[in-house]
Amino acid sequence: MTVATPLALSFGSPIGLLALLAIPVALLLLAAARRRRTSYAIRFPAATTLALAAGSVSSWRRHVPTALALAAIAALALALAKPQRTVAVPVEGASVVLVTDHSGSMSATDVEPDRLTAAEEAAETFLAKLPKATRVGVVAYSDGPDGTLAPTTDHDRVRQTIEAQSAVGATATGEALQVALDTLAPNGRKAARPASAIVLLSDGKTTTGRDPVEVAKTAKKLGVPVYTVALGTADATIPNPVSPLSPPIAVPPDPETLKQIAELSGGRAFTSGDAGQLRSIYSSLGSRLATKHEDREITAGFAGAGLVLLLAAGLLSLPRVGRLP
């Protein structure tokens, strides 16, 4: 289970912050009271002797009760403003489908040790970020979808499906996206789960099958965002399968189309040229898709702190002067 993580502080009733004006007012009143006591002071010949008999109090100790009282006012004023903390909490019943390209271009070594291995390792990072309750499915594809797993909480099966791929064949991204979409929104019905998303990793242009851009438009209507990751570098090549003596084949990624897919579906596009960056992207996606932000009121904490500070100020002032600051 993912622990809620604090993200930001806000206020449900910010007008309550006006109570903080009590602090400068209290300081002005305290300064005025001290000037008044000085104005009415009288000479007493034995004052030095009495001070020695009573013992001295360090300057900073005389100010501690006042400082605590002011801090208490500040805490109570913040409590009046109903402070809220924004936290990331797990999404119950989240469902994600990983669509992974294992076409022949995934054998390119521009991403160490090669694109396919880097993608598999990044998927491990992604799964590690997800709560155990998150359902994960897989659609592996090249010439067409050839390795599918319905969303499940058995993440070990997900790993096995991903690791069973080998780099071969063409790139049918549109067909794979459609299978993933049918899994999350069967029969064209809008996805009913609280969080349904597709994560698509590909390293090249679609070379066969339906247009993935059109599938992305349908995904938007069905409430399933597609997060895309374009893997590889522009100058990447693979050996020519016809003959080792033939010129190598260029296999640049296609970030433009993947960005279009993400934008049309309501997702977000990423690009990666190295394994470390790819793992970082997948880690971020794992957190994004498995959590949601909620505001939680923390008024009681501020109110409690204010009362404790006020009590401490009173206790520290009594031994010195016999009254509250």
Rank of each mutant, 00 (worst) to 15 (best):
F302M: 10
A216F: 00
H63I: 09
G276L: 04
A150I: 07
D295F: 11
R62S: 10
V25A: 15
Y227K: 05
T257R: 15
L222M: 05
I298K: 05
G12P: 09
A118W: 03
A51C: 06
R268A: 14
G169C: 09
G322E: 07
L68M: 13
V99W: 06
F44D: 12
A81G: 05
R279E: 12
I238Y: 05
A150P: 07
R37P: 07
T228R: 04
G137F: 05
E163I: 10
L78I: 15
D110S: 10
A41F: 02
P65K: 01
D101W: 00
V226Q: 01
E120I: 08
L52P: 00
G322M: 02
G104E: 11
P239A: 13
F126Q: 09
E121N: 14
L231G: 01
S280D: 13
D254E: 14
P248N: 10
K190Q: 12
T5M: 13
V138G: 09
G16N: 00
A77L: 00
E297T: 14
T228F: 04
P255E: 00
T100A: 09
A250C: 11
I198V: 11
L264Q: 14
V158I: 05
A77C: 00
R43M: 08
A164L: 03
P45Y: 10
A290G: 15
S202V: 01
A185I: 03
R61I: 04
P45N: 09
T86W: 10
F270Y: 15
T66H: 11
K190T: 14
V99F: 00
D254I: 11
V158N: 07
I249F: 00
A150F: 03
R159G: 13
I42A: 08
T134A: 15
A53W: 13
G314H: 06
R36N: 10
